[in-house]
Design a binder for these strands. Structure first.
Length: 677
RNA sequence: GGCUACGUAGCUCAGGUGGUUAGAGCACGGCACUCAUAAUGCCGGUGUCGGUGGUUCGAGUCCACCCGUAGCCA
């Protein structure tokens, strides 16, 4: 262990002040908090700051919808988020907001320096504009049909059905999600950060151990595509900071968000007297680490270091990305009832169960982490209750009852204790490297050894023999000392259990150094429940509650579905309906149409008469699957001349279109030509 | 669609630079124990290492393609 005291600043990703925290957010907070607590236990000066991400269109729009100011909205989520973090024992040294004077000042400073350095340019671009709401629309606020596969209801940047990416101008039948109006296109001057100016600097930076090895490949891909200018401005109305010397223009939320890390730290400095410059100046020798999710690598490994370098600040020591959370092997999903919020979890389960389970599965790589709820129950109960807490539970009774809480003066097996102490260096290395799953594995191997020791010594046998009082006291003292070391090693993961243990053992807060000396000739308190088993019923109750919340939310939201997308048409009389002559037909032949990616040419047998019909169902059906099938057609529709020939009728089908289209089939037995009445 | 990563026992995961019969925990079966909110210890079986082909004396480990999962596409 290096005796040198390190100065470390740690951040985790900002939380968007637009919705509740869920168990996916907690992966990052727990990972970061565990690492920070470890550094503090090692005696380093480690500060953990974070903030609410408070700007941008979604927040502005939501506040409008709720009839409140954005400030009121972000204040509400700030309170909710803080409470969630406190209850999960996330020990921020400062939790702030990007909507702060410090952040405005720093954002303006960085912008001015970038501009002075020639790294900012401006030009007029064309952008979608909602004529009713009178505001420019982000891509995610425009929906329409995919230009490639015609899937309806797709966002302006990518199609979730076929995976195509495109510009919102490519969408067919685009509508604004805010007003339902068709967007128009308007010109506006935008400001750009010239990221490409920093390519050599960034290429060097990522090769010097500042990012994980598996991230370098991804970054190489971006370099290969070429770095492009980054649009850092948005037009009013926008909730954010106005750009200096540019009235009506605001900084894009992603511009001031990472600066929020600095602002939160600056706020901490003003409260505690820490030296801001010692951490952020260009020649700073302190360490700065950002823990983030893999989805925001681009911002943290390219834009952010480039912005800092361009504004004459130091760059981060490292960016640590983690994967996403899945629940029972699948993406968290509201419809599957696995979109579990932090608060719902907390109302049913102990936060340390989750801290332990995540730690047991986290490593230094950018890998997704699965919360398997059956495994969660089994693992927590087996490891924490069966192995760890049990050690104390099986020793404490004897010490409390037979020796009035008094531990023996020496350890009977000091070599075993020394072995536990020396294992601490490897555990520390793995903590430092964020290999928490290895940490947990190593600690559990030690816990097994402690249980073996007690089994071998059989204190319950000794207890029945007269004259072996000192031996009994020694065995239990040994067991409690091993337990104390294990809890010490797990303290970054289980701070609350560690605190209860410290109270039970009647000792000062554990750190890495104090573990090296055993606790002897000392009086402990009466053993109390340090941690209880996870009950399957609690997990079930949490899932039930999650489903209920989801149902409630769905009721509040306007329904979606075919009836909403296309309301039932105007009433007609039976005579009107009878004008349409629907007939059963057998599809005798189906073939693709040259030059059309939507149409199939169908030959239909009406039981004596043959019709040729073009049907727009090519994306939904293979021709060979249709041949021989019965279906329903409009038989008296006026023939229509098309580019590919004449269509003599129409086949009935339902669905929004594209791949989502289903033709009608009659029950078996009805002969072709039968009229539908 | 392009790119990146991942895909090992029923479950959750280990398996630097390719090398004897592929490992651990949980679960499961047997035995022991009873101090412990049944918690512990000992013994035991378990896998065509996603698929196909290739490089090699030898591949879970390297290469190609395919399938599946996740993310990114500013």
């Amino acid at each position: 262990m290096s005796a040198k005291k390190r100065d470390i600043l740690v951040t985790s990703g900002l939380l968007y002040a637009n919705g509740p925290l869920h168990l996916g957010h907690m992966v990052e907070s727990i990972q970061t908090d565990t690492w920070v607590r470890f550094q503090k236990m090692r005696g380093h000066n480690c500060m953990y700051v974070c903030a609410e991400d408070a700007h941008g269109t979604p927040i502005m729009v939501r506040a409008q919808d709720e009839g409140i100011s954005p400030e009121e909205l972000i204040a509400r989520f700030d309170i909710e988020h803080r409470a969630d973090f406190v209850d999960f024992a996330i020990g921020f040294d400062n939790y702030y907001t990007t909507h702060s004077p410090e952040n405005r000042e720093l954002t303006e400073l960085i912008y001015r320096r970038l501009r002075a350095g020639g790294h900012v340019t401006s030009r007029v671009i064309e952008q979608a504009f909602d004529p009713i709401k009178e505001m420019f629309l982000p891509d995610r606020f425009i929906k329409g049909e995919c230009p490639r596969c015609s899937a309806p209801d797709q966002y302006g940047d990518a199609c979730e059905v076929c995976g195509a990416t495109y510009a919102p101008t490519d969408l067919k039948n685009p509508v604004s999600m805010l007003s339902g109006a068709k967007p128009i296109y308007k010109e506006s001057e935008h400001y750009f950060f010239k990221l490409q100016n920093f390519e050599p600097m960034l290429r060097a930076w990522i090769r010097h151990g500042h990012v994980q090895p598996d991230v370098i490949n991804k970054l190489d891909e971006w370099f290969t595509q070429g770095l492009r200018e980054w649009d850092i401005s948005r037009d009013a109305p926008y909730f954010g900071f106005e750009i200096p010397d540019a009235p009506g223009k605001y900084f894009y939320v992603w511009m001031d968000a990472p600066i929020g890390y600095m602002a939160s730290f600056k706020n901490l400095c003003s409260r505690t007297g820490l030296d801001f410059g010692a951490y952020w100046d260009k020649d700073s020798s302190t360490e700065i680490y950002h823990f983030i999710g893999k989805d925001i690598l681009y911002f943290h490994t390219l834009f952010w270091p480039a912005m800092l370098a361009g504004a004459n600040f130091r760059t981060p020591s490292a960016v640590f990305a983690h994967g996403f959370l899945t629940v029972n092997g699948q993406k968290m999903s509201k419809s599957r009832g696995t979109f579990i919020t932090a608060r719902t979890y907390l109302s049913h389960l102990n936060p340390e169960y989750l801290r332990y389970y995540y730690a047991a599965k986290l490593n230094s790589r950018v890998e997704d982490l699965d919360l398997n709820l059956d495994d969660f129950v089994a693992r927590v109960n087996a490891d924490l209750i069966g192995k760890l807490i049990n050690i104390a539970s099986r020793c404490a009774g004897f010490i409390n009852k037979r020796f009035d809480g008094r531990l023996s003066d020496t350890l009977p097996e000091s070599a075993l204790y020394e072995q536990f102490v020396s294992a601490g260096e490897q555990i520390a290395k793995n903590y430092e490297a964020r290999e928490f799953s290895r940490v947990v594995r190593e600690i559990m191997i030690l816990a097994d050894q402690a249980n073996q020791y007690i089994n071998d010594q059989a204190p319950w046998v000794i207890a029945k023999q007269s004259g072996h009082q000192a031996e009994l006291q020694g065995i239990c003292t040994q067991g409690l000392n091993l337990f104390r070391v294990l809890v010490g090693y797990l303290k970054p993961v289980l701070p609350l259990t560690a605190e209860k243990t410290e109270a039970f053992l009647n000792i000062k807060p554990l750190d890495w150094q104090t573990l090296k000396t055993p606790m002897t000739a000392h009086t402990i308190n009466v053993f109390t429940h340090l941690l209880t088993r996870v009950e399957q019923e609690s997990v079930d109750a949490m899932l039930t509650a999650t489903r209920l919340e989801q149902d409630t939310m769905n009721k509040d939201k306007p329904a979606t579905g075919p009836l909403v997308d296309e309301p039932i048409a105007e009433e007609v009389s039976i005579d009107d309906f009878k004008k349409v002559d629907l007939r059963l037909a057998r599809i005798v032949k189906a073939r693709p149409v040259d030059g059309s990616n939507k149409l199939l040419a169908l030959t239909l047998d009406l039981g004596g008469e043959t019709r040729h019909v073009f049907a727009g169902i090519k994306e939904a059906y293979k021709p060979e699957d249709l041949e021989g099938r019965m279906t329903v057609m409009v038989a008296n529709l006026a023939p229509r001349k098309m580019r590919f020939g004449v269509s003599e009728g129409m086949v009935l089908a339902a669905g929004p279109g594209g791949k989502e289209l289903w033709i009608l089939s009659p029950d078996e037995g009805a002969p072709p030509g039968s009229r539908v009445t």
